[in-house]
């Protein structure tokens, strides 16, 4: 898949991301394509399964930070929504928000697992 295509699918602003890595494009690429191996998502899913709310908050918070640094805007927004809901005690909204987050995370993992040009 071409970088341009990846960017449009995952709403990535490539230039802004490279500048976050102080212009070191290789370094950004390395961390971006390493995202599928990151275990934060598994930790979050496990916490959600066990209804461990502090664990859900911690996992979503970490995921939000990673997404922000990698420029995965959709993922960042969806994890932020989960963090906010837990903090505000809006547990009734969580199932829908977790579903959304699961979808955007799965999409990112899928796309970033394919070889890029």
């Amino acid at each position: 898949m071409e970088i341009q295509q990846i960017c449009s699918l995952l709403e990535i602003d490539w230039q802004a991301c490279v500048s976050r890595f102080s212009g070191n494009e290789g370094l950004y690429r390395r961390f971006l394509f390493r995202f599928p191996q990151d275990e934060t998502w598994e930790q979050l899913a496990r916490a959600w399964e066990q209804q461990d709310m502090p664990g859900v908050e911690r996992g979503a918070h970490t995921l939000k930070g990673i997404a922000a640094n990698l420029g995965l805007s959709r993922l960042q927004a969806d994890s932020a929504a989960v963090v906010d809901a837990v903090r505000a005690g809006h547990t009734e909204a969580l199932p829908a928000l977790m579903e959304q987050l699961t979808a955007s995370c799965r999409l990112a993992r899928e796309i970033l697992s394919q070889p890029a040009d």
Binding site: R20, F21, S22, L27, F31, T62, G65, N69, L70
Partner: peptide, 14 residues
Amino acid sequence: DVELNRVILSEAFR
């Protein structure tokens, strides 16, 4: 504690 965060900051001051 997150490697990615350290990398980004370190890169800024490398």
